[in-house]
Design a protein around this nucleic acid. Structure first.
Lengths: 109, 109
DNA sequence: TTTAATACATCGTATAACAAAGTATATAAA
DNA sequence: TTTATATACTTTGTTATACGATGTATTAAA
């Protein structure tokens, strides 16, 4: 079991990595919010709650990195699908560069 | 020049990585606060201000990951040297494991 | 004598994850 | 039938932490 310090640290680390992982995921395939939570968990082992993901998606839309489209379902609640924009793609590319640099710094020490 | 989104993202990423880099640096060699700012910049290219590093060091001491010792100088202001504790070392080891896992996740996609 | 570098400290602000609570639909179990 | 569970989106309040701004003090160089 992780101690308080490590749990807290994990949370802070997530603050930086989550926007990157979300843009990365949406760059590969459009998703709706609830689906994204599953995707992050299944493919990356990253656990996020709805109260984290929905405000984040709203923020990324305000920054013009994402757009959304409501899609009605034959049954059940409509889904809000998110798509990465060109702005989103260029920002993601910058983020990838930064991440690669940081990884190199971590590995070279 | 980075846009607002990316500058902000850099800051958030730092929130997670900084405690790791600080512990890592102090694990290699004890430092005083002002020296640590130079070390982080010179060896990792990470720019932090005093209003970031001093509260962080205080926090890591409260968590028992660090201890400090004042060292008087022949001339000038006394220096507060920080040393990593056993608790600090074990937490750093956990952080290293997490970081390695995250790097693997980033690289495998 | 004034500027800059060294060295430590603190206050206020902004950002963002997350718990908690809420709304709504659909299905399976009791 | 009622209840629980899963799906799907939203918002409010709390908490953690980087950082700008500001302050104190010492020393050396311009």
């Amino acid at each position: 079991m992780k101690n308080e310090f490590l749990k807290n640290w994990d949370t802070q680390l997530k603050k930086g990595l989550l926007p990157f992982f979300v843009l990365q995921a949406l760059n590969q395939k459009e998703c709706y919010g609830y689906e994204l939570i599953q995707t992050l968990k299944d493919s990356l082992g990253i656990e996020v709650t709805e109260s984290t993901i929905y405000p984040l998606l709203i923020r990324l839309m305000k920054e013009d990195l994402l757009i959304h489209k409501w899609v009605e379902q034959q049954s059940g609640i409509p889904r809000k699908y998110y798509f990465i924009t060109e702005v989103g793609k260029s920002n993601l590319a910058e983020m990838q560069k930064s991440i690669v640099e940081i990884i190199e710094k971590i590995q070279q020490q």
